[in-house]
């Protein structure tokens, strides 16, 4: 579904990604793991068109996205949940979801689907997003992205700083999306979360995907976790 080949990208003169090869398949959760600075977040931003890319290709369902400006990429089925949520804080929950649904005319059934997935948001629709708890903000960040009806969902550390009950809720939502056929790309640092959710794990170091491993072949203390994450 999503194919990234030989992607080189960075910020101005600083090259972060150095020839990344990566792919994500429909109905699978692909985790990206690696130490800080390995290029995980930059890879997601490059896929979204928010980072300048020098070389390589990004294809989604056979369509080349490489030369498309950032605002034209979501229309092809890409959605991004950024690290730190980056909600539109002064806007209400309802308005955040409305922004999510702008491309598809803010369809009622899509919003209902999101509110069914995260019922707590229904009680908070008129509340400014900035006033939500951390867990609720993460639900809204994911819900807002789902309003795009994505084929590929890029999640950047969605469980960061959340309490266990919220982590379980986010995990259930991810697994439900996977069951619905969405290709989920998940940046995650916690090994137990990766082992519970992932189908495949891409280990990144020095701006490259060094190893792509089936998650069922991994366990706590596996060499890859030690080599690429240090746990």
């Amino acid at each position: 579904m999503l194919e990234v080949r030989a992607l080189t990208a960075g910020y101005g003169p600083v090259t972060v990604l150095r020839g990344v090869d990566f792919d994500a398949r429909a109905g699978e959760v692909t985790c990206l793991m690696g130490r800080n600075g390995a290029g995980k977040t930059t890879l997601l931003k490059a896929i979204m068109g928010l980072v300048e890319t020098a070389e390589g290709t990004i294809r989604l369902s056979g369509i080349d996205l490489h030369d498309l400006p950032a605002h034209r990429r979501p229309g092809h089925g890409l959605a991004w949940v950024p690290q730190g949520r980056r909600l539109f804080g002064p806007l209400t929950v309802a308005e955040n979801l409305e922004v999510g649904g702008l491309l598809h005319g803010h369809r009622r059934e899509v919003r209902e689907h999101v509110l069914t997935l995260f019922p707590r948001l229904r009680e908070r629709l008129a509340q400014p997003a900035a006033t939500l708890s951390g867990g609720e903000q993460q639900m809204l960040a994911i819900g807002r992205a789902l309003c795009l009806e994505p084929k590929v969902l890029l999640l950047d550390e969605p469980t960061e700083g959340l309490q266990p009950s919220m982590i379980a809720l986010i995990r259930d939502a991810v697994l439900r999306l996977k069951a619905e056929g969405v290709a989920v790309v998940l940046v995650e640092q916690r090994v137990d979360a990766v082992l519970k959710m992932a189908d495949r794990v891409a280990f990144m170091a020095h701006g490259r995907v060094e190893e792509m491993v089936e998650a069922r072949k991994l366990e706590h203390g596996a060499r890859q976790f030690l080599d690429y994450v240090g746990v």
């Binding site: 979204m48 068109g49 990429r73 979501p74 959605a79 002064p90 806007l91 922004v99 491309l103």
Partner: peptide, 24 residues
């Protein structure tokens, strides 16, 4: 209005606005 919503979203975070299809 939708135009106002788009302007307010862009005001908060232009990169995220782009990621939702807004032509900043």
């Amino acid at each position: 209005t939708r135009a106002g919503l788009v302007m307010r979203a862009t005001q908060v975070d232009r990169d995220v606005a782009r990621a939702f299809g807004i032509d900043v």
